[in-house]
Design a protein around this nucleic acid. Sequence first.
DNA 1: GTCTATAGCCAGATAGAC
DNA 2: GTCTATCTGGCTATAGAC
Lengths: 203, 203
Amino acid sequence: MIKTKDATTESLILEAANKVFQRKGMDGARMQVIADEAGINKAMLHYYFRSKQQLFEAVFKKTFASFAPQIIKILNEDSPIEDKIRSFTFNHISFIIQHPYLPNFIFQELNRNTEFILIIKEEIGLPNLDKFKKQVQKEVEEGVLKPIKGEQLFINILALNIFPFLTGPLIKAVVDIDDINYNKLLEERKTEVANFIINSIKA
Amino acid sequence: MIKTKDATTESLILEAANKVFQRKGMDGARMQVIADEAGINKAMLHYYFRSKQQLFEAVFKKTFASFAPQIIKILNEDSPIEDKIRSFTFNHISFIIQHPYLPNFIFQELNRNTEFILIIKEEIGLPNLDKFKKQVQKEVEEGVLKPIKGEQLFINILALNIFPFLTGPLIKAVVDIDDINYNKLLEERKTEVANFIINSIKA
DNA sequence: GTCTATAGCCAGATAGAC
DNA sequence: GTCTATCTGGCTATAGAC
C-alpha cells in the first residue's frame, strides 16, 4: 500500500478495514489481512481501535453514513413523485456502481447483528417515510398515480435499485453474460428502472 | 432435539446444519452449535461429513436445489408472460415467506465463494433464460407488451420478489412497523408485485 | 507511534474406549 | 455408530523493546 501525501495511520487502517470487511464480512475478515492491506503492523490495529469489534463498528458506521443520505434525500424533497423517482434511481444506481460491495456488506451485517439498527438509529439517524407516504397518497387521490401504498412503492424502488448488486455472480450466471455486458445492463438500469416504475404507477 | 420416528443421524445433522448455517453463514457457524441443535455429539459431524467445509457444501447444495426449481419452472411454461408473472410471483413469495432466511443465505455464500456457482451449474443446473427472452421479445413485437428486454424484466421480477426478505430488519426500521404489520405487507406483495409489474409492461 | 514476539483462547479435527 | 478427551492450528490481543 502506497501512502498518499497526508494519509494518517488511522485513515489507512480505516480504508483497509473497509475494503476487507466489505468483501469478507465481520466473521470472515482477518486482522492480519487488514494490516497487510494497510501496509502496517497488526499490533497497530489494536493500538488505534482496541479490538476487532470496535474497528468493525467504526467502519460500519462510516459506511452506513455514506449510504443513508442518498435515501434520506429523496424523501424530503418537494418535487413530484415522478421527478423524485427519476433522480433518485439515477443517482442511487450510479452511486452503487461505484461501491458495488456496499449493499451486500450492509445487509449481511445488519442481518447478523440486529442491534446495529438501534445504534444507527441513534447515532446516524434513519430515513423517515412519513412525508413520502403522504405525498404518494395525495398524488393517488389527485389521480396522478394509480392506487399504491407509499411503503410498497418505497420497497419496490429500493429493490429495483439495489438487488442486482446483491446477487451479481448469480445473475451473471443465469443471464449468461460476461462482466462487460453485465455492466452495460447495470448502466441501462440508471434510466430503465425509473421508466419501469413510472410506467407502472402513472395513472 | 426430539427424534422423529425414522430420522437418521445424517438427516438430523443436515437439518440442524441447515438451520445454523442459514442464520450464521459459513464463517459464523460453529460445529458445536450444530451438534447441540441436532442433539448429538460434535464428533459425529466429522464422522458423517469429514469437515465443516464438506458439511456446508452438502447443506448448500440441498438448499439451492430447493430454491432453483421455482425459478426454472416459470421459464419453461407455455403460458403468456402475464400469467407466468402472476403465478410465479405468487408462488415464489409464498415459498420465501415460509423460508425467510433462505435468500440471504444463498446470496451471502455465493458472494463469499464464487466457485459455488460453477459447482451448482454442473451438479444441479441453472435456469435458462433463452425461452423467456424470446417470449418477451415476441410479445413486445406483437404489441402485447411495451418494449423491454427479457433480462431486465427477469431481474426486476426477482428483485421485487426477493428483496424485502434480504433486508427485513432495516426495512422494518425505516418503514417503522412491527413484525405483524411487516408480515401483512409481505402477504400483500403476493399479488401486489404482479400488479406492479404488469401495470408497467402491458401495452 | 511502531515494531517483534508471544500469550491465551477458541474452534475444527482426531484418537480411542465402548 | 456414538461417545469423551485431547490435539493442533489459527486468530485476537497484549507485553515490552525501541
